[in-house]
């Protein structure tokens, strides 16, 4: 199954240059430069309040940058975002909302171009395919509130995939999800990335992302991203400030550069 159309474009999916962003009186992101290419699988870590969600909002065109430029598929984000599949943070919406799994996934088929058109057989086919993809076809008639946190998150991934995105953007996809479900979600993202959809995810979850993502960045007001999988001490101390050792403890060794004189 092919999720993204295989048409390769020369331009990057997202290109951010010298960008600052924030709210009225505070700057949260400063001098951000980032390129997201086709096939990328980027994990972005950073402390709370470091601007992870703000960066996502800028990429999604939900927040205007203060300075600098951002292009999504060579267009302003308000236009280019139609190629982005967005998986919002868990707590953002009402888990009690009365709606079935299928109806949630179908939302991925909506757009401003088809306002007066009812859902078609083609939409139903795509929705079913995505539900198979996230392993939830048997749950399609269940209400969203009857699902576990992990299942719900997979429904939102299916919804994002239903819009045939070139890039999947996820905001803390494994918050309040147990370890088993967490692995399931990352396996799924790995599979999706293999199908040619770029993935950009922000998380606290250092351990798990290390084994699935291709590259890692650190964000705390400034972005430290070199298109590499290793997190260097410099990146960590710049991102988290002093207590680097504490954080380094939680990291598998192949992600961390070897300390000189360690062991």
């Amino acid at each position: 199954m092919i999720i993204a159309d295989t048409l390769k474009t020369p331009q990057p999916l997202v290109e951010i240059k010298n960008l600052s962003a924030g709210y009225r009186h505070e700057t949260i992101l400063e001098d951000i430069n980032l390129t997201i290419e086709q096939d990328d699988f980027i994990g972005l870590i950073g402390p709370n309040g470091g601007g992870k969600t703000t960066l996502l909002r800028v990429i999604l065109g939900l927040l205007q940058p203060k300075s600098g430029t951002i292009q999504v598929m060579g267009e302003p984000p308000e236009k280019g975002r139609q190629h982005i599949g967005y998986v919002p943070q868990f707590a953002e919406y009402d888990a009690e909302f009365p709606i079935s799994v299928r109806d949630v996934v179908r939302m991925g088929r909506l757009s401003n171009k088809r306002l007066f058109k009812p859902y078609s057989a083609e939409d139903d086919r795509v929705v079913e395919e995505r539900l198979v993809w996230v392993d939830l076809l048997d749950y399609q008639d269940r209400a969203i509130r009857e699902l576990s946190g992990g299942q719900r998150q997979r429904v939102y991934i299916a919804r994002a995939l239903a819009s045939d995105p070139r890039l999947l953007v996820l905001d803390e996809p494994t918050v309040s999800v147990d370890i088993e479900a967490r692995t399931h979600i990352y396996e799924l993202l790995y599979k999706i990335n293999k199908e040619g959809v770029a993935i950009f995810l922000v998380t606290h979850d250092l351990n798990v992302i290390s084994s699935y993502v291709k590259t890692i960045g650190c964000l705390n007001r400034n972005l430290h991203y070199h298109g590499e999988k290793q997190i260097t001490d410099d990146m960590l101390s710049a991102t988290y400030g002093c207590p680097v050792d504490l954080i380094a403890h939680g990291l598998p060794h192949r992600v961390l550069a070897e300390h000189e004189g360690e062991k």
Partner: peptide, 15 residues
């Protein structure tokens, strides 16, 4: 329904 359920997703879909 989409706007009531999840406004930011609806926005990203350009509704």
């Amino acid at each position: 329904q989409a706007v009531a359920f999840d406004e930011s997703f609806a926005r990203v879909r350009n509704l």
